[in-house]
Write a protein that binds this DNA or RNA. Structure first.
Lengths: 127, 127, 127, 127
DNA sequence: GTGGTCTAGACCACG
DNA sequence: GTGGTCTAGACCACC
């Protein structure tokens, strides 16, 4: 359960967490039956208020992606499988598109952008 | 003055406009002395409320990037040059980083992501 | 936090509130760490719209005088101390100057103006 | 016709000019039949746009304080006498009151404020 | 025509 | 409960 919160982007924290959990469900990192970390643990790790986590779980439950069992914890439902990959891929594509436009606006061409992305991979694998 | 607003991302509209104008100043698309479109024009083009634009201009003025002259219009200041490219590049890099992580979380590798980005360029040039 | 709004003067409400909060910071009536009344309280007390207060706080924050913490409230920053008294005194002096000129233009001499000011103090202490 | 414009106060320019002309009428500095300087002259002296002056004159004419005679100039009407001093005195008093409160907010007492006002007179007479 | 102030009210995000 | 964003619309000031 790797969730990264970027405070500088202006994207609401709840939205970031929500999106990333949905991504993990779609990619298979979270599978039906898996248990999520407790509210306290998540809040602690991400350094956010417990209520923020609670509100995220509420929304995910109302979407049917997770199930909260009183006294036991929070679990990914069977319904979470399906094929939500399509939506995810569209989001990723939109993100890539935004990046390309931003680069263009700065006068950064395709070649330079590719280098920048390779650098991201290099950094990641070097971790 | 190409400004794209993405309503689905969760990033506040004001923030998107703010960032893109700053980007245009940094890249040289907007140069000292240039006049910005009027509040009404911008609001119309971007399909947002005039107050939203006004708030953006207020912030940009307090940063010293633009100057508003009553009855005349809004202009880019000399101060807007400087070397703010560094900050811009850092933002772009952070954005690229986020994209890479998002792709990884979806099980999309470097090769596939590259293709996706090439597709963005192809689409853009095809426009 | 005594803030007086004079609607008849033609000075924008935001400006009046802004100036008075700055004055309170300069005089020590508001000290670093102090919490301001909430947006709703201020708006209620002063009988103005919440957005008007919000715009004031936005400006004060961009000046670095206050800090707004989401969900917690608005606080005076450490930076608010410094020595902004000089600016304040200049403003007060300019105000006194304007009063004297206005009196002169009406044919009111120094003696009568002094009486008028004493009357203000008498009224104030009589409250 | 001494008119002082203070750009830093936030009071609209038209309002300042308007008030001061009314004051001059009330005090007798401008008497029925007197001719006002031309729009061009006023605009030049006060360093404001001619349209700004025009709008002021329009309002004064609609109040009946002045009369504009095509090709001749602008004149103070008979009606301008009356006894508008009461209103003027109330305004002056309100101004004095605001000054006293501002001083108090800064921790400036009656004695110091008196000195500051005496200084204004000294400066004025020294001019 | 330009920018600017203010109001009213809906709805969101964070603690 | 806190602050924050956005909309809609009236009205003002300046060129």
């Amino acid at each position: 359960m790797i969730i990264r919160i970027e405070k500088a982007t202006g994207v609401p924290i709840t939205r970031q967490i929500l999106d990333q959990i949905r991504t993990h469900c779609a990619s298979g990192a979270l599978r039906p039956g898996d248990q999520l970390p407790s509210v306290r643990e998540l809040a602690g790790e991400l350094m956010v208020n417990q209520n923020t986590i609670l509100r995220v779980l509420e929304r995910l439950e109302s979407e049917g992606l997770i199930e909260r069992r009183h006294g036991l914890g929070t679990f990914v439902t069977d319904k979470a499988a399906g094929d939500p990959m399509k939506v995810q891929m569209e989001q990723l594509s939109a993100e890539a598109d935004a990046l390309v436009h931003h680069a263009e606006a700065l006068g950064i061409g395709q070649k330079e952008l590719s280098k920048m992305i390779s650098a991201c991979y290099a950094r990641k694998n070097g971790d």
